[in-house]
Computed example of a mutant assay.
Amino acid sequence: MTAVRRSRPAVLVVLLCAALGALCLLSIALGARAIPLDQVVQALTGHVPGPGGQAAENVVWTVRVPRTALGLTAGVALGLSGALMQALTRNPLADPGVLGVTAGAAFAIVLSIALLGVGSLFGYIWFGFAGALAASVLVYMLGRLGRSGLTPVKLALAGVAVTSLLSSLTGAIVLTDPEPLNRYRFWSAGSLAGQNAEVVRHILPFIAVGVVLALACAPALNSLALGEDVATALGRRLGLVRLQGVTAVMLLTGGAVAVIGPVVFIGLVVPHVARVLAQRAGIGPDQRWLLPLSAVLAPCLLLAADIAGRLIARPVEIQAGVLVAFIGGPFFIAMVRRRRLAEV
């Protein structure tokens, strides 16, 4: 019986990785042009014979593989940053989109286009990092105001207020300057389309460093969950832990937003699903498992939304960010209405 319980987490991870692999294959197979699954497999493993084989290979390798790789990379970044923020703040409503981090990155990127003429992805990323960090600090400071100090609901309200403000400022910039408007219209919906493999190579180093920093925080986050006094007594340097966590969130969110746009709610929904699965697998609230589970579940959600967006309104595509928001909005409302939030 003990051996069965110990094997549950490994089985859960294997099943989720298998589901992610299946979604990656579907993402490569499905699109505006219908390509048989056997030709997709042939294109991935070698050569597609017969007439039209070269065209199928070009579609697979130049369009769908980069799009899938981008969804995989950005999904890992957004899911892991959301789980990390919830653990750092001990706030079940924490999410890069809800707490203004995504809006801060988006505002800084648009500002760099309009005022400084930045035109390369490598330039966007740095401004995305700066905007994410500035928005995080602002929301945290606003959430601490008042007699009751920092609470989950106040932090969420501060995040909504900052997000609304930054979104309004971003809209004002793009309406007065046609150049950022043309780039912003498609990007702001949150999409995986229109990117190539070079884009993934640009953001991969930043996100890889963010993933390493986030996973390295897991033991300290388990101590922090017991309370700051207990964590300090256990020898945790909370200032260093928070600095490491904020750096990881900045790298993960800034890198993802710079490429796919401000996709919200992934970081909110995924960690809660990970906790439910972890509880059923007998893992409990162990961040050493919750963080990796979130990193696997988030790209599953993003790729599933992207695939659904291609199929629902063929030949027109619905952007993945729209479908994710459609799922995450009701989930966020349900979380806010839960009574026990006041006791977190």
Rank of each mutant, 00 (worst) to 15 (best):
R6P: 03
E57H: 07
G119A: 15
A22M: 10
A334I: 12
R8A: 15
A87D: 01
R90I: 04
L293T: 06
A94G: 01
A189L: 15
L25Y: 10
R64A: 07
A34Y: 05
N91P: 11
A108W: 03
G267T: 08
A313N: 15
L293K: 08
L111S: 15
S7M: 14
I113G: 12
G159P: 11
S188M: 04
L84T: 02
P49Q: 14
S148M: 13
P315T: 00
P205S: 06
L204H: 11
L302R: 05
Q279E: 14
A132W: 01
V336F: 06
S191W: 05
Q86E: 04
A308M: 09
L243F: 13
V14A: 15
V174N: 00
V336Q: 14
Y124K: 04
R201E: 13
E343P: 00
A305D: 03
P262K: 02
R6V: 09
A313D: 10
C17M: 14
V344C: 09
P178M: 11
L297M: 01
K154V: 03
A189S: 14
T253G: 06
G53P: 11
F127T: 02
P92C: 13
V118N: 13
A10K: 13
F129K: 05
A320G: 00
D95N: 08
V249H: 13
T45Q: 14
F122Y: 13
A248H: 08
L204M: 04
I283L: 03
I207Q: 06
A19W: 11
L30F: 01
L293A: 07
G104F: 13
M141S: 13
L80N: 02
L238E: 11
A214L: 06
T62R: 15
A216L: 15
V139K: 00
L341D: 02
A29I: 09
V322Q: 05
R275T: 07
T73S: 12
S27P: 02
A108E: 07
A77K: 00
G31P: 01
V59Q: 07
D177Y: 08
R5P: 01
V63D: 13
N91C: 05
A94M: 12
I333V: 15
P51G: 09
R90C: 09
G146P: 01
P330E: 09
V76P: 08
G267H: 09
G329R: 12
N222F: 00
A320C: 08
G52L: 04
L15E: 02
R340Y: 10
D177A: 09
L175N: 12
T62S: 10
V200C: 04
P51I: 06
I327L: 15
P285C: 04
I333K: 09
V200A: 03
R339M: 04
G245Y: 00
G235L: 04
P51K: 07
E343L: 15
L224H: 05
